[in-house]
Computed example of a mutant assay.
Amino acid sequence: MNNTLRNQQFTLARHLRDPLRHAPPPGLEDRRLEVYRELFYGTIEGLLATSFPVLRQTLGEQCWHARVRDFYARYRCRSPLFTELAGAFVDYLQGVQPEASWEVELAHYECVESQLYLSDAKDPPHDPEGDLQEAEPLLSCMARVLAYHWPVDRIGPGFQPKVSSAAPTFLLVYRGADLCVHFARLSPMAYRLLVLQGRGRDRLQALLASPQEGLAMLRQLREQGIIVGTR
């Protein structure tokens, strides 16, 4: 590729990403450029709006489009895959001044849903009928155990808290056999039971929990497919 063509391509790319700061290559009709500006931005914005519907509604149209345009202009994605765009947007938000203190956590919460919906991951080898006390319970690769400072499962246009919760919000997000993504709040005990490592018995001892109660919880989680068995 000769240098002239290369320079023209980079000049056009810079203009399409940030038309207010970068002029287009000379000789191109603005009417034609407008088609590309709208097409490229509209594609990115549409994909992000699908992944972050609550964030978009809660921020409002003006703030949302300002966010997306800044992301589109300044962020340098490391992957060409559209399926990784939501994760890139969360990474971008972590490096900018938030509109609200809960913005990054809400975006991360919605991103997890998008990632699980698209995931084709497979569980590692395991024993579906393994002893949940004497062996190590294995969390499904389609489940995420999350902790947030903000009640992200409640935030929306009608609820925008100014102060974070006194206690963390523990959440379970998982894709079920119906291929739908489900959400559930976790008690502190259930959260720690799932994030601790080691045998089920060791986890219960660390929690000072009754073996009967803890084992019943592990069995229920296995019936739901959240725990797939033992490692």
Rank of each mutant, 00 (worst) to 15 (best):
Val181Met: 05
Lys122Asn: 12
Ala216Met: 02
Thr83Ala: 15
Val181Leu: 04
Arg154Met: 14
Glu45Gly: 02
Leu16Ser: 14
Leu47Pro: 00
Leu146Lys: 12
Ser101Leu: 08
Leu186Lys: 00
Asp18Cys: 10
Glu45Thr: 03
Ala49His: 08
His126Trp: 13
Ala177Glu: 12
Pro19Gln: 05
Glu134Asn: 09
Pro125Trp: 02
Arg201Gln: 13
Gly200Leu: 02
Tyr148Val: 07
Val68Arg: 00
Thr11Gln: 15
Trp64Lys: 06
Asp120Ile: 14
Arg78Ala: 12
Gly214Glu: 01
Glu99Phe: 03
Glu136Gly: 07
Leu179Gln: 09
Phe183His: 15
Gly198Met: 01
Arg222Met: 00
Arg203Trp: 00
Pro125Val: 08
Leu47His: 08
Asp127His: 12
Asn2Arg: 12
Tyr174Arg: 00
Gln9Asn: 09
Gln197Phe: 06
Met189Gln: 10
Leu179Asn: 08
Arg203Ser: 04
Thr169Cys: 14
Trp150Tyr: 11
Leu20Ala: 14
Tyr75Pro: 06
Arg154Lys: 14
Arg37Gln: 15
Arg203Cys: 06
Ile226Pro: 01
Leu204Arg: 02
Ala66Tyr: 07
Tyr72Gly: 05
Pro168Thr: 03
Pro24Cys: 09
Gln94Phe: 06
Ser140Met: 09
Leu132Cys: 07
Ser114Thr: 15
Gln57Leu: 05
Gln133Thr: 11
Glu61Tyr: 00
Pro24His: 03
Gln115Asp: 15
Leu20Asp: 15
Trp150Asn: 10
Tyr174Asp: 02
Val104His: 06
Gln220Ser: 12
Leu186Gln: 09
Pro24Tyr: 00
Pro25Thr: 07
Leu12Asn: 02
Pro161Asp: 08
